[in-house]
Amino acid sequence: MKWNLRWAAAKRDIWRPVDLQAAFAKVGFTPSLSKVAALWGGTPVTVRLEDLDKICAALGCTVADLMEAEPVAAAGGQEEQERAVGGEAGPVRPVPRRDGPRRLRPPN
């Protein structure tokens, strides 16, 4: 996901974390300045839905304005193929390998 908090804030003429904290305070959202700076400076690992709702209210935007989906690169530099949930793209369960001797007894 791409985090677009700075872009959404810039549309409201907010350019610093301190100004963003003041906008948050107007809607009753009072995070610490360090938390606001962390949201401002990079993509957060987690954001509570309640906090996300208050951020959107403070900036007059939607969640889609704050977060943008990006394609995920698969191993080997190839892009992962997208499919619908429940779509047939391969086996659902792992398939056992049959390329070597099978262990018949557990190790000692």
Rank of each mutant, 00 (worst) to 15 (best):
M1P: 10
M1A: 13
K2T: 15
A8P: 13
A8E: 08
A8I: 10
A9I: 03
R12A: 10
I14C: 04
W15M: 09
R16W: 00
R16M: 05
P17R: 04
P17Q: 05
L20A: 05
Q21C: 10
Q21M: 11
Q21D: 03
A22S: 14
A23C: 07
A23V: 01
T30H: 13
P31I: 03
S34Y: 00
K35S: 10
V36I: 07
A37R: 10
A38T: 09
L39W: 15
W40L: 02
W40Q: 00
G41W: 02
P44L: 05
V45I: 13
T46I: 01
T46D: 15
V47K: 07
L49T: 11
L49E: 15
E50Y: 11
I55V: 15
I55E: 09
C56K: 02
C56Y: 13
A57L: 12
A58L: 09
L59K: 03
L59Q: 12
L59C: 12
G60E: 04
C61F: 09
C61M: 02
D65P: 06
L66T: 08
E68S: 08
E70P: 01
E70N: 00
P71G: 03
V72E: 13
V72D: 11
A74L: 09
A74I: 04
A75Q: 11
A75C: 00
G76D: 08
G77R: 15
G77Y: 09
G77A: 12
E79T: 00
E79N: 05
E79Y: 05
E80R: 09
E80T: 10
E80H: 03
E80D: 11
Q81F: 02
A84H: 13
V85A: 14
G86H: 06
A89D: 08
G90P: 00
V92H: 07
V92C: 04
R93G: 00
R93H: 11
V95E: 04
R97D: 03
R98G: 15
G100C: 14
G100K: 13
R102V: 09
R105D: 05
P106E: 00
